[in-house]
Design a binder for these strands. Sequence first.
RNA 1: GGAGGAUUGGCCGAGUGGUUGAUGGCGGCGGUCUUGAAAACCGUUGUACCUUAACGGGUACCGGGGGUUCGAAUCCCUCAUCCUCCGCCA
Length: 424
Amino acid sequence: MMDYSFVDKNRNRVINSLKARGDQFQLKDIDHLNQKRKDLQKKHDDEKSKLNDLSKEIGLIYQNKGDANVAEKLKSQSTALKAEIQALAEAMDKVHAELNEKLLYMPNVLHESVTSGNSDADNPIVRSWGTPKDIQNAKDHDDVAQTLGILDVERSAKVSGSRFSYLLGWGARLERALVNFMLDMHQKHGYTEISSPFLVHKNAMIGTGQLPKFKEDVFCIEQPEFYLIPTAEVPVTNYYREEFLQFSDLPKKFVCYSPCFRKEAGSYGKDTKGLIRQHQFHKVELVQFTTPEESYQALEELTGHAERILQALELPYRIVSLCSGDIGFSSAKTYDIEVWLPSQKAYREISSCSNFEDFQARRAGIKFKRDGKNDFVHTLNGSGLAVGRTLVAVLENYQKEDGSVEIPKVLQKYLDISKLTPGM
RNA sequence: GGAGGAUUGGCCGAGUGGUUGAUGGCGGCGGUCUUGAAAACCGUUGUACCUUAACGGGUACCGGGGGUUCGAAUCCCUCAUCCUCCGCCA
């Protein structure tokens, strides 16, 4: 969590950032709790020190075969003191827990380059790549896939309900080809491939910031309690939780392919057709652990690594920088990559690349040593890319009038075909 | 799921109630010696919080939580993880 000392030291930045986000977090609540905690701890520590001295004294009397009566007297003093200490400890723990619980709801401090705005409409466009093709009567990916017979959302509705899907035959193979292509490419970018757990403990979800604030968005199973990962960011970032890394080991870069599970609560009626918004989708995720000095350069690089996938697939896209009103709770700065979808004549999010600075590292306890000093690492992640949405973009951008779909060149060696045609 | 064994500082490994944050070794850092390096020798070497202008002082931490006791790494309970054997399973 944002620890109190950080808030105290960066008070002006924190206040400005909360204001820009439009966040209702109240600093005076934590100020009050922290003062209370300090006072209680001081008292507790002083009393405990007295008790420790008494115990030592008693020990010495026994060792030196001293006066047992004196020892007994000291013992009863200790017993009285102990009750006091117990009460202080309980009060202190309670206040501390309250403070920490509150701090978990405090969003990250925004980077100075984040522009102010209220919604995604205010996100500045950073750059664009490629020229959208003018496709006459472009069909949406759902139609394209149905025509090819590679997507079945009727049977998934029967089995799992809405927002699930089956991919069949070449559809399933195309998805797998995309995954392999992405993993291979990021391997070349210097990321270590990692295969992670898909069920995690609550603490891991707190570490990366999904909990406690966004409980409604994630799937939870009880007995035993587990959370289904909404992104591989969770198991991969938490890989180093409560650890010290060596300065010489940084940066650490991981790429992880995983399913992602999201409730998509509050998005009823949005993107109901096809593969755009699913309860379960697949994603290749990039995660980096860096020093504080390097994290913004790393964000540019990581975003570039995600872009290279779209460039290789020859899919037009643009980059937007999320404004203060649109950026996520845990992030200090985020670039969204949006791919062109001919059927919608619009750019749609396909990747989100963020620098969390030390926000997640503080929550998860990930530090590094440099010259004998300890500091929190910076964590970053970005989709490289969302596989389902990439499939959507390929189907839509490579569709032909006869209902066939060309296979992007870089995927052909993974599939041994150059074209998908209806009925094949 | 059942039965045993284990969990100590960066690593290895002592330590079964009393000034123990914890013997020793390795590693790391600093120094002596050396033209330099190695070896040898000497010293040093955890984290978090409170307090102090600072030097420093205090509290907590020996897998997690709870208990017994004036006092717990050490005794008791409980949970977790790992290892071995059995069962089951991909």
